[in-house]
Simulated assay, not measured.
Amino acid sequence: MILIVNRFLLRKGFNGITLWPFVVLRNKQLKEDTRLLNHERIHLYQQAELLIVFFYIWYGVEFLVRWFQYKNRHLAYRNITFEREAYANEKDFNYCKQRSFWRFVNYL
């Protein structure tokens, strides 16, 4: 995980984004936020499993489907399969060590 601090690459309300192999953070204090870093680490695993490009395609398509479904961008984002897995396990700091391959499908 390569950490980059740049608030201009993030939308308002977001503290981090994973763009394999980089994790972009809003400010340098977030480098100490273990929960956020674990959340982003889960996304790194997801991206690697889907050979990066397929992750972004799936993520974008699912976001559009969820946006149509919920009529709310925030709810759509929170219900993307990849985000559901990351939010559900961001407090489990051993999760990535024990996580099985393609585990995100359990969050469909």
Score class of each variant (00 low, 15 high):
2 I>E: 14
2 I>L: 11
8 F>G: 11
9 L>D: 04
10 L>M: 12
10 L>G: 12
10 L>K: 13
11 R>G: 12
13 G>C: 08
14 F>K: 13
15 N>F: 08
16 G>E: 05
17 I>F: 01
17 I>C: 06
18 T>A: 10
19 L>D: 05
22 F>A: 10
24 V>A: 11
26 R>C: 04
35 R>K: 13
35 R>A: 14
37 L>T: 04
38 N>A: 11
38 N>T: 06
40 E>A: 09
42 I>D: 03
44 L>R: 01
45 Y>D: 06
45 Y>W: 10
47 Q>G: 07
48 A>Q: 11
48 A>D: 05
49 E>Q: 02
50 L>G: 07
51 L>T: 08
54 F>G: 04
54 F>W: 12
55 F>D: 06
56 Y>D: 08
56 Y>R: 07
57 I>C: 07
57 I>W: 07
58 W>R: 10
59 Y>M: 08
60 G>C: 03
60 G>H: 05
60 G>Q: 05
64 L>N: 11
65 V>A: 07
66 R>N: 07
67 W>S: 14
67 W>Q: 13
68 F>L: 09
71 K>E: 11
73 R>N: 11
74 H>M: 13
75 L>T: 12
78 R>D: 14
79 N>P: 09
80 I>E: 03
81 T>Y: 05
83 E>I: 02
86 A>C: 09
89 N>Q: 09
89 N>F: 00
89 N>W: 00
89 N>I: 00
89 N>R: 05
92 D>K: 01
93 F>A: 06
95 Y>N: 01
95 Y>F: 15
96 C>T: 15
97 K>E: 14
100 S>T: 13
100 S>Y: 12
101 F>I: 11
107 Y>S: 00
108 L>M: 13
108 L>T: 04
